[in-house]
Every structure is written in C-alpha cells, then in structure tokens.
Design a protein around this nucleic acid. Structure first.
Lengths: 167, 167
DNA sequence: GGCAACATTGACGTTCACGTCAATGTGTTA
DNA sequence: TAACACATTGACGTGAACGTCAATGTTGCC
C-alpha cells in the first residue's frame, strides 16, 4: 500500500555484500531459469529445503543468485542422484550448521572450541561423502558391467564380419 | 485340493536348467532375503518390473534365484541410484528384448539379420550406459568438492595445533 | 483329516512431491 | 488511477509406491 521500488526488506545492511545480492529475481524468472515450477519453489521453501528468500514490501518473493544456485544443487541432487527431499533437507541442514560455525569462528578465540567445531564440520562432511561414495560404487559396478557387455557385442560383430568376408 | 509336493507348474520341461531353478522360495523367504516387503514383491510383479514367478498348483508364488537377483538389482537401481520404477521397467523391458534376441540368435542363420540384432542390442546398452555416465559425472563432482573441503578443514586443524604447541 | 501358519486377491489408506484452482493482493504501465 | 499482468495464500486433487486390513484359500505336519 505504499511501495515504489522493489527493494528487499532485509539484507540491505548485509554484513558481506557478495554482489550476489545485487540482482534479485521474481519467482517466474527463477522458475524459468531453473526449469522448476513456481509451485515447486514455494513447496521447497515450505518444507525447508530452501531458506526463505527476501520479500518486497508487498510480499513478493525476491530470489538472490545464491538462491538460484542452491535450487540448481537441489535439482541435481534429486534428478541426477535420486535423493529424496527429506535427504536433501538433511544435507542442507548440515550445510547451514557448517555455515553458522563458520560465522562463529572468528568470534571465538578459544582454540579448543575451534577444534571441536572443526571436528563437527569434518564429521558432517565425511557423512555426506560416504553417501556419495556408496552411490559411486554402485554406479561404477553398473558401468563396468555395461562396458563388458559392449565389448562382448563388439566381439560378436567382428566374428560376423569375418564370416561374411569369407564367403 | 490335491497337492502333495510344491513342484512348480511350468519350467518343469525348461529348455535350459541352469540349476537356478533348483531351489524355489516362497514370498516370505524372498522378502527376508532381499529386505523388501511381501507387498512390494507383489506390487513389482503387478506393475511389470518383475516378471511373474512360477506358482504352485495352489497358486503360491515360487521365486527362483534368478528372480532374487533381479530383485536385488531393482533395489539397487532404486535406493542407490534413484531410478523410478517406471525407469527401471524401461531398463527391464530392454533387457527382456535383449534376451529374446539372444534366444532367436541361434535360430536365425542369416548373418545380416544377426548384425541388425547386434546393433539393436548395442544401442540399448549404450543408452543404459549413458544414463549411468551422467549420474557418475554428477557424483564425481560432488566427491571432488567434498574432498577439497575435507582438505581445507585438515589445514585449519593443522594451523590450530601448531598455535597450541607454540603456547 | 484337522489345524496352525502362511499364502492369495481385493480394496482402501497413506506419504511424498508436487498440480491446479479460487479468491485476493501487488507492480507496472498508459 | 485504472487496467492488466503477475504475485500471494489456502485448499483440494493426483500419481507413484507402497501399507494395512479383511475374507478366503493352501501347505506342512501330527
């Protein structure tokens, strides 16, 4: 009821202005860029896999470039790797935890506290890595199997060609 | 109403008796071995991702070792690689096509026909391989990223330890 | 041949990941 | 400031992948 420029509400006094926050985009744009639907964007926010973007005074969502990157990561985790949104949410939560730790890092001077945080971060990362490694192992097995089959097919083909030439 | 031994109906005159068909198992057993539920086994059969197993005269399902292996493949495709049952069904259909081609292989004497079949089989396999490669690439990227993070964490840890020793 | 244990087929219920529609408010442009 | 495109929040609908329950039939064993 009194808006002129589409200026985001918070982050105007953002601590680090990584020029990600320079260009905000509305939901339609982001949907088009990511290949997701508007409904999906709202849903991801609703269930907590995407942190709520900023809003205009009127309540329109304004997505940052960082948000778009996160959405693309989510999309890959889902489509390419078959993670459920629940799993993705776990990963995202872990990332946020890590982020908070990084923020607090410079605040805290106690090296023992810092070591504990490092260990926590390390553990989270190793857990994620393990998930990835498991899937990698399975895929490698399939790859090997399929390549072996291709080789066998090629051998058969060679036999056939030889047979044909001999006649 | 007149059954004595749990002898499967068909495949008793099976063309090749690969001693897979030697030990048939009932649904409970198979469920326990595969970690799937009985409902899931029936469902997979219903939607066509698993070819219907043989039955006793009374109608009990009897799964072969080959069936169990197929179920384990399906499970991996789903849980590890995130394929949908629709995708898995496509892959299974392709496999069956390949199987039929193999059966017909010895029947047909025309080398040109055989070459055409080889090409078809080759194409199916390459398609499957491509799906796998795509997922592999995505996972490798994630792996690299996570390993780099672990390295950075280790570097920070080393710094901290040094600091502590100096005091 | 009788009985407990396990199987079968419906049929309906549930969760996830959205799709779709309606009622209403916002942003931009003429 | 009127108009029109685009946004918002409910709310209900949907397809996939099963879970669960009921009614009934089968198998193995004594």
């Amino acid at each position: 009821m009194m808006s002129h420029q589409p200026v985001p509400l918070d982050e105007t006094l953002s601590e680090q202005h990584t020029d990600d926050e320079a260009s905000y985009q509305r939901i339609e744009q982001v949907a088009a860029r990511t290949g997701l639907t508007k409904r999906t964007l709202r849903y991801y926010e609703e269930i907590g896999v995407l942190r709520p973007p900023t809003r205009t005074e009127g309540g329109y969502r304004l997505y940052s470039e960082a948000d778009v990157r996160q959405l693309e990561r989510i999309k890959r985790l889902k489509e390419l790797l078959g993670f459920s949104l629940a799993e993705i949410r776990e990963l995202a939560d872990a990332e946020e935890q890590r982020e908070r730790v990084r923020q607090a890092w410079r605040q805290d001077a106690d090296p023992h506290e810092k070591l504990a945080w490092l260990d926590r971060s390390d553990e989270l990362t190793r857990h994620q890595l393990q998930l990835v490694e498991e899937k990698l192992a399975g895929l490698h097995e399939m790859e090997t199997f399929l390549r072996a089959r291709l080789d066998r097919l090629e051998a058969l083909r060679a036999d056939l060609r030889e047979q044909l030439e001999d006649m």
